[in-house]
Amino acid sequence: MSALFNFQSLLTVILLSICTCSFIRAMMPTLLDRRKTGLLGIFWKAARIGERLSPWVSACCLIMAFTILFW
């Protein structure tokens, strides 16, 4: 089943992409900073969300991990 049709899988993919983009931007900032517009700008925006809302993103990751493991 695709992640588009299952809401929990869609949230998992979004959270993982936010965390991954934030990590990539922390390690290699020029990689995402060059592509702020267009289709690849989504990854830059995800990195900004991960940087600015990091306590909320980490709380959502913990909640998502708990629901995946124990639900």
Rank of each mutant, 00 (worst) to 15 (best):
I42D: 07
P29S: 07
N6M: 02
L40I: 04
G50N: 05
C21I: 01
T37R: 15
G50M: 09
L16C: 04
G38Q: 06
N6Y: 04
I63Y: 11
V57C: 09
W44N: 14
A3T: 03
C19N: 10
I24Y: 02
K36S: 05
F5M: 07
K36V: 13
M28P: 00
A3M: 02
S22I: 00
T12F: 01
S22A: 13
I18F: 05
G38N: 04
T20H: 04
M64A: 15
L15E: 04
F43T: 03
S9G: 04
L69W: 08
M1A: 14
T37V: 06
C19G: 07
V13N: 06
N6E: 04
K45W: 07
M27C: 09
C21Q: 10
L69N: 07
F7E: 13
L4Q: 03
L31E: 00
S54G: 00
R52G: 01
A47R: 03
M27E: 09
F7H: 02
S17Y: 02
M28H: 09
T37M: 13
A3C: 10
S22K: 11
R48M: 12
F5I: 11
A59R: 03
V13A: 13
L15W: 03
R52C: 02
C19I: 05
I49Y: 09
I18M: 06
L39C: 03
M64L: 13
F66A: 15
W44T: 02
F66M: 11
F23V: 06
K45A: 11
W71R: 14
W71T: 08
T12S: 09
R35L: 05
L32S: 08
I18H: 06
R25V: 00
N6K: 13
K45R: 14
T20N: 02
A65F: 14
T37E: 14
A46W: 08
F70V: 14
L39P: 01
S2R: 08
S9F: 01
F23P: 00
I24H: 00
L40E: 09
W71H: 11
S9I: 01
D33M: 05
W71P: 00
T67D: 02
V57G: 08
S58I: 09
M64Q: 15
W56A: 14
V13S: 07
L32F: 06
P55F: 03
M28L: 14
A65V: 08
T20W: 08
L53A: 15
A59D: 07
L62Y: 03
R48P: 00
I49V: 15
A46G: 03
L40W: 11
G50T: 01
R35K: 13
